[in-house]
Computed example of a mutant assay.
Amino acid sequence: MSANRTEVRELTRRLVSIPSHEDETAAGDAIESWLRAETDADVTRDRHGNVVARRGEGASLALVGHHDVVEPDGSQVVGPAGDGPAADDGVGDDIADGNEANEGETSTNDVEYVVEERDGRLYGRGTADMKGSLAAAMLAFRDADPAGELVFASFVGEEQGGVGARAAIDDGFAPEYAVVGEGSTNYAGDDQTDVVVAHRGRRGSTLTARGTAAHASEPEAGENAVYRACDAVDVVRGLDAPDATVLGERVAGSLVVTEIDGGSAWNVVPERCTVTVDERTVPGERVRLDAVESIDGVEWTVDQDLPPMACDDGRFADAALAAADEAQSATPERVTKPHATDAGWLAQAGTTCVVCGAAEPGEAHTAGESVSVDVLARCYRIYREVATTFQP
């Protein structure tokens, strides 16, 4: 069986129409129902809401995505707080027979998502990030003739730091290889879908400076927490951002102070000041931010740590690149990605990953979020080809 452009487009439209920014249940229901109806795979829904399907035997290759989205812009919904146009006729139909998921989505989120098509592109929340690539992966999972075990996984909570992926990994989800369908289109050139062999992570930190309050007319009677925080900022400014090379591709990190907050009144020497630091991490390297604790009264704490990803098997990267080359007229390239994805959690747990998907830079999380239907069809061909040809 082979999906055509229309089938990929319609499945994408149906997935995108289901609200999943507050509660992913209805979207997960629809994906699970479709897999049960369209495949003979072993389909499970874990206690976290992740949908996983498996077929075939042997070493495993997974096609991975997520069905949660960020909160939509008002123009992307109809209903309370929404100002978008009415959705196209039929867009809200459930993927399986009946409309149970649609009924649940409206009562849960009290809105309906708008899906529009213009000039060969689908517009709406989640088209790019990442229900379009998810639809392509579902169809490829159905149609591929895998050499080993083929796995499909759609996680919840990716937008909240990989909640679903982390929970699945803790419960034993451990494919040998994975293609994660986050964006890789138009990275190295126009109208081409590339293969990401590494991406940055993110470590968000807080520097807390503590001092002793005093009246501002007698500053020597206290210890100024803002001054200590400024000294810590100077330490951060003197640290070099990390840098790494993965399969010949350079991944450059970054380090920047993004917020500072301190003081309680204009006439009081501040006793507390906090500084937020955003660090984009790279595989194998971390900035030594603990150096700020050399400043009296300064403490460093990590608030979020999303891991980077590095493909550790050139053979798999080559297979994915060959599949991408077969699926398009342009010549795809190995590239790196500046954003963290669930591939970071999977790689950290031992899965060899690449990232390949339809989203283009600047599309995700925007009011005008969109995806090319032609590129969705291309991604379907890439996923089906790598699932069929790669020998895990």
Rank of each mutant, 00 (worst) to 15 (best):
A165G: 06
P19H: 10
P146R: 07
L207I: 01
A367G: 11
H21G: 11
L376M: 13
E369R: 01
V355M: 03
V111M: 11
R9M: 07
A252R: 01
L122K: 01
E71C: 12
S217T: 06
R45G: 13
S264M: 11
L239Y: 00
V114K: 02
D110V: 03
T331H: 15
A377K: 05
V354Y: 00
G362H: 07
T331K: 11
A244G: 14
R14H: 07
N267V: 08
E360P: 02
G104A: 15
L11K: 00
A153Q: 06
T388V: 08
V179G: 05
H66I: 03
V302P: 00
D190E: 12
D342V: 12
V197T: 06
A135N: 11
G368F: 13
G120K: 04
A135T: 09
G253Y: 11
L239E: 07
A101R: 04
V77M: 06
G263D: 11
D46P: 04
G90N: 03
G161H: 02
G362M: 04
R14Y: 10
E22I: 02
G284M: 15
D312V: 00
D240K: 07
S75N: 11
G238A: 09
G28P: 02
A96Y: 04
I95H: 00
S60N: 04
P283Y: 15
G120Q: 09
A319L: 02
C230P: 02
Y113W: 14
M130G: 01
N267K: 07
G297T: 10
E158Q: 05
G357A: 06
H339R: 13
G49D: 13
V251L: 14
D191E: 14
T212D: 15
V287R: 08
A317S: 05
R200Q: 15
I260N: 03
W34M: 09
G262S: 09
L346E: 02
L289S: 15
A317E: 08
Q160P: 00
E158G: 01
A128P: 00
A322I: 02
D29G: 01
G49H: 10
T388M: 05
L306C: 03
Q192M: 08
R381Y: 12
A59W: 03
H48K: 08
S60Q: 02
L11I: 03
F155H: 03
V354C: 01
L376Y: 10
D191N: 13
C311T: 12
D119R: 04
R202C: 11
G172A: 10
Y123H: 07
W345P: 01
R9T: 08
T185F: 06
A81E: 15
G132E: 08
G344F: 04
L321Q: 07
E117V: 03
T108L: 09
R210H: 14
G253F: 09
S133R: 01
D313E: 15
G204W: 04
S60F: 07
T336S: 14
V355I: 05
I260R: 01
R378M: 15
A330T: 13
L15T: 13
D29R: 00
D290W: 14
E182F: 03
T281M: 15
V77S: 02
V298C: 12
R142H: 14
N267H: 03
A209I: 08
W34I: 00
A167W: 03
A322H: 08
A59S: 08
L376N: 13
A214W: 07
V236F: 06
D190M: 04
D325Q: 10
S205D: 10
E117G: 03
